[in-house]
Nucleic acid binder design. Structure first.
Lengths: 334, 334
DNA sequence: ACACCTGATTTGAACGTTCAACACGACATT
DNA sequence: AATGTCGTGTTGAACGTTCAAATCAGGTGT
C-alpha cells in the first residue's frame, strides 16, 4: 500500500535498517555481497528515501524559497520567467528544489521567508529585483537566514550576490552602433536613482566618451518611466530636435518598443537597441542585450549554497556576468 | 540558538507538549486560562510549528508539484508565468505551497512526479499544457497520484480538470467583429489535431454560421505552425485572394502578431484579434481574448484538493471558465 | 592462549510533531 | 454510596531517517 521504507527493504534483504541506509549513503562500508542483495531489494520494492524524514533528521529541507511576483502590468514579459526556469534547472543539478511563495512587499517577503525558515520549510532564499537600498538583504542577514541576491544594493560587501554587467551591455550596444557608422547615439532610460538604470546609462556614456562622441550629446540623454508610452514620447522628442540622433540605446525592451513604434509610424531612420531580449524583442525585430540568465541561475545556487566543505571558505561574495548583444533588423546598417 | 519547539513552549508555560499542540490545533479542549498562558509563551519565544515534523507525522507535505517548462522559443511570452503566479496565490489561500521541478518531456514529468510523491515531497501535481491524448493523466491515475489538469485531453471524465472555454473566446471575437460591420472574417490557427486549436476554430466557425456568414468562407480558414513567420505568410495569402477578408481571428497572439506585421507593412485594412492577451498584445495594440487566469488558478487548487471532507463527494470532475475579449486598436472599427 | 585490532553489521536514540490512550478531579445520575 | 460522565491534562508511541555507540566474528601479533 504505502510506499516502502528502509525497514521494508531491510526485511526483504535480510539485513538491518542501518545497513540499507549505509548502502545508499556510505556504500564502501558494506560488503559487496550484502550491498548487491540490498540493491536488488531496493530495486524490487521501488524504494525511495522519504525526503521529509531525511529533512527532519538532518535539519535541512534542501528547499530554496523564491518569491514569485506579479507581472509588472506595463512590462513586456520580463526576464522573470526565464530566470525562474534557469534557477529551477540549476537547482536540479544541486539536488535542490524551489518553493514558491508570494508576498505583498519587501517587508512582507522578509516576514514570509522568516516564517518558512523557522518552520524548516526552506534552507535559504534567492532574491530577485534588488533595488539600491533594498531592505531585504540587511533584514535577512540580521535573521541569519542564508540568501543570495540577483543584483546589487550598493552595500553588498557582506552577502553573496550575482549581477549582470549592465554597463558592459549598453557599452556593447554603443560599440555595435559605432561600428555600423553611427555617431549621434542617444540613450533612453528610466530616471536616475534606480541602480540598474544608472549602470546602463553609465555604460552608454563611457562608451561614447571613449569614442570621443560625448561632446554635444547632452540633449541625447532622456529619461522617463519604464513604459511603452514613455518610449514613444521620448522618441518624438529626439526626432524633433534640430540635430536628431541616428541611433538609440534603450534601457529596456519596453522603452525600445515604444521608440520603435514612433519610428515606424513616422517612417524615420533610427537604429534602436533594447535591453533584456524579451520575447517581444524577437517579435519586433528589435536588437537587444541578452542577459546570460542560465549562467546567472547556476551562479546564484552556488552562491547560496556557499563554499563546499573542503574548499577554501574565503571566496568572493559577488560575481559579475557579461551580457551578450543580439543583433536584429532594428539596428542593421542601412 | 535553534528555533524553539513545542517542548520549549511547554516548559515556559508550565504545561506539557500536547497541551501546546492542543492550543494550536484544538483550542476548545484547553481551559481559557491555560490557553492564554501558552499563547503568551508562544508569542514570547516566537514559536512556529516545524512543517517538516508535521509532514512526517501527518504523511502529507502540503506541497503541490508543478513542472516549470522552458519557454517556447517562438512564443511571445506565454500565459505560463501569469498562470504560475495565479496558482501560487491560490495555493497561499489554501495553505499550500508550490514545489517547482523540471522535466525533459511528459514521460520524464510523470517519472519525476512519481519520485517526488514517493519521497513524500509533494501531495499532488498540477498539469499545464495538456494536449489531446496526453499521456500524463492516465499515467498519474494509474500511479494513484492526485492531480488536476489545466486543459482537456478528450478522455477526461475520470480526473479533475479546469479549462478555458476556447470556443467561446473566438466566438466572442467574431461577435465583436460582426458588430463592427465585418462580414468576411478569416481564421488563422494551427493545424488540426491540437485540441485547443480545434476548439478555437470551432468557436469561429459556429459564430460565423449563426450569422449566416459561413458560406463562401472556406478559403478563409488557414492553418500553420504557431509562429510569427507563419502568421505573416498566411496574412499574405489572405490579402492576395480575390475576395480578401476584412478581419482575422487568430488562434494565438503569436500568429496575430505575424498577421499584424504584414498588415502594417502593406498598409492593408484588416482588423485582427489575437488570443491569450500576452504582454506583447498590449505592445502591438492588438485586441486579444484574455483568459481568466486567476480564476483558473483557484479552480485548479480546489479541483486538486478535492471535495472538502463533509461536503458531498460527487462533485463534477471538470470546470469550464469563460474568457474575456480585450478590445484594442487592431480591431477598432475604421 | 591472550589481548588487540579491523571490518561488517546491529541496536539505541533522536529530529519535532500529533494521535491514542490513560489519569485525575469535579460533578451528575441511579 | 457506588457508578458514570465530562472536562482538562498528562504520557507513550509513532511517522522514516541517520548519527553514535555497541556487538560480533575473524584475523594478527606476541
Amino acid at each position: 500500500m504505502h510506499p516502502p521504507t528502509v525497514e521494508d527493504v531491510a526485511r526483504a534483504a535480510g539485513v538491518s535498517r542501518q545497513t540499507v541506509s549505509n548502502v545508499l549513503n556510505a556504500p564502501q562500508r558494506v560488503r559487496p555481497e550484502t550491498r548487491a542483495r540490498v540493491e536488488t531489494a531496493i530495486e524490487q520494492l521501488g524504494y525511495r528515501p522519504n525526503r521529509v524524514a531525511q529533512s527532519l533528521r538532518a535539519a535541512t529541507s534542501r528547499m530554496i524559497g523564491y518569491r514569485i511576483e506579479p507581472m509588472h502590468p506595463h512590462a513586456l514579459g520580463s526576464i522573470h520567467d526565464r530566470f525562474l526556469h534557469a534557477l529551477a534547472e540549476a537547482g536540479r543539478a544541486a539536488d535542490r528544489h524551489l518553493l514558491l511563495f508570494t508576498a505583498d512587499d519587501p517587508q512582507d517577503e522578509v516576514a514570509n521567508v522568516q516564517a518558512l525558515h523557522r518552520a524548516g520549510a526552506i534552507d535559504g532564499v534567492v532574491l530577485y529585483g534588488i533595488q539600491s537600498g533594498d531592505p531585504r538583504p540587511p533584514g535577512l542577514r540580521q535573521l541569519r537566514i542564508p540568501f543570495a541576491a540577483f543584483g546589487r544594493t550598493g552595500a553588498d560587501a557582506e552577502h553573496p550576490w550575482v549581477d549582470i554587467d549592465n554597463a558592459a551591455g549598453t557599452a556593447a550596444a554603443v560599440e555595435h552602433l559605432v561600428t555600423g557608422g553611427h555617431r549621434r547615439i542617444a540613450f533612453v532610460g528610466y530616471p536616475q536613482g534606480a541602480a540598474v538604470g544608472d549602470r546602463r546609462a553609465d555604460g552608454w556614456r563611457t562608451a561614447l566618451d571613449q569614442h570621443g562622441l560625448l561632446d554635444g550629446s547632452h540633449h541625447l540623454d532622456l529619461r522617463g518611466e519604464d513604459s511603452l508610452a514613455t518610449g514613444s514620447r521620448l522618441a518624438e522628442v529626439l526626432l524633433d530636435h534640430p540635430t536628431p540622433p541616428t541611433a538609440v540605446v534603450a534601457a529596456t525592451d519596453t522603452l525600445a518598443a515604444g521608440v520603435l513604434r514612433t519610428v515606424r509610424q513616422r517612417h524615420a531612420r533610427l537604429a534602436v537597441v533594447g535591453f533584456d531580449d524579451t520575447p517581444t524583442a524577437g517579435a519586433l525585430d528589435l536588437s537587444s542585450v541578452r542577459q546570460p540568465i542560465e549562467a546567472v541561475g547556476h551562479a546564484m545556487i552556488r552562491a547560496l549554497l556557499g563554499p563546499v566543505p573542503g574548499e577554501t571558505p574565503g571566496e568572493p561574495t559577488g560575481q559579475l556576468l557579461a551580457p551578450e548583444l543580439i543583433v536584429r533588423a532594428s539596428s542593421a546598417p542601412h
